[in-house]
Amino acid sequence: MNIDLPILWALVILFSVMMYVVMDGFDLGIGLLFPWFPEKEDRDVMMNTVAPVWDGNETWLVLGGAGLLAAFPLAYAVVLSAFYLPLMLMLIGLVFRGVAFEFRFKAPPERRKRWDIAFAAGSCVAAFFQGVTLGGFVQGVAVDAGRYSGGALDWLRPFPLFTGLGLMAAYLLLGSTWLVLKTEGELQQRARHLAQRAVWGLLAAIVLISLWTPLSLPDVARRWFSWPNLLWLSPVPLLVAISAWQLLRSLRTQAHWTPFLLTLLLIFLGYSGLGISLWPHVVPPGITIWEASSPPESQGFALIGALLVMPLVLIYTAFSYWVFRGKVRRGEGYHH
């Protein structure tokens, strides 16, 4: 039986990126929410909700990047050349956030404010430039003879910048619904209120990106609006509308789990829409997963390692979230 290794590797990388967006998204969202929670005690609780799990969440980013290098080296070279600056700024933001996370708890009271600013700023920079990279990738990368042929600032265009703001709205929604799940009292109620506003921000971003993309990219327009694709793909925007309505409804009640789960569904639907628009291109608009593939022997060897590592990471992740389940309260640990 012939196995299409490029498709398997594409699924592995797509899964890893989705896991990163979901799992690192909510703790980046915590940093984005800091300006709305100026009290030290609230910020302590917010950081304690993610303290046991935040560093493990970035494992999926490493796995996705390593998978791209192993399976699609041409795409890896082109993407890094095209987005070198935004990716470097993203990594700098992640470094600032990580350092601030650790130092904030150890700093004397008079210096804690600086680390709070560093944590919030690092989260904003990382989230924004992740979105910028995504937007530039969706709009297409200039390639000539297998090499990046554009300029260093080709990503500095309206659509990628708007996508950066859209991803920040998604992370804000993830962070606020995570707080609804993990906290209680006044902090939880404020998180509910912020989540309702973030839903509308994310919906606006989804609508504008969904209109902007097919209007500027004819191939995407043909993918979505040709027959019978229009019939088969119409459930995606319908499910987005239903999920958003149910999410707003759940935020007006005293539900704890439901808002976060519906946010995950909403982000998954948006991610699926992007996947449908771009498939099977690993570097839009012209390089497919088969054209960018490494030799089958290399892909097969690396795939064995990935399929051994991924279940272990999933088991460890599930175990850590189970151990640290429950609410986080002021001045206390976890309560089951």
Rank of each mutant, 00 (worst) to 15 (best):
F34P: 00
G270A: 07
D144G: 04
F159R: 08
P280E: 13
Q130P: 07
L74P: 00
P259M: 02
T59F: 02
G56K: 03
F15I: 03
T183W: 10
D55C: 02
I276F: 13
T177K: 05
G146Q: 07
F83W: 08
A195S: 15
Y321E: 04
G166M: 06
A170I: 09
L174F: 12
Y148A: 09
F225C: 05
G326W: 01
L134H: 02
V17P: 00
F268T: 14
V22T: 11
L174P: 00
D116P: 00
L69D: 00
G31W: 04
V53W: 00
H335V: 12
L265I: 15
N229G: 12
P38S: 10
V78S: 01
G131I: 06
V12Y: 07
S210R: 03
I315D: 06
P160I: 06
R249M: 06
R325C: 08
G275W: 14
R190M: 10
P237E: 01
V309W: 14
M18I: 05
Y271S: 09
A169D: 09
V240F: 04
V125A: 05
W232L: 14
P228G: 09
Y321T: 04
L308N: 12
I30C: 02
D219S: 15
L172T: 05
L217M: 12
Y316K: 07
N2A: 12
F34N: 03
V141W: 01
T213D: 03
Q254C: 11
F128W: 13
F128P: 02
V283C: 11
L69I: 12
T49V: 04
L231P: 03
G326Q: 05
L233K: 00
V95I: 15
F129N: 01
L264Q: 11
I267M: 12
W200K: 13
V12A: 05
L69K: 03
K106H: 10
L134R: 01
A198Y: 03
T133E: 07
F319K: 12
E186C: 07
L5I: 04
G333I: 02
G164T: 08
W9K: 01
L233A: 01
S294R: 06
L91N: 01
R157G: 07
H256S: 14
L68D: 00
A205Q: 05
W155F: 13
W155I: 03
H193F: 15
H281Q: 11
N2Y: 13
F96K: 00
W322P: 05
V236C: 04
E291W: 08
L264S: 04
Q130Y: 12
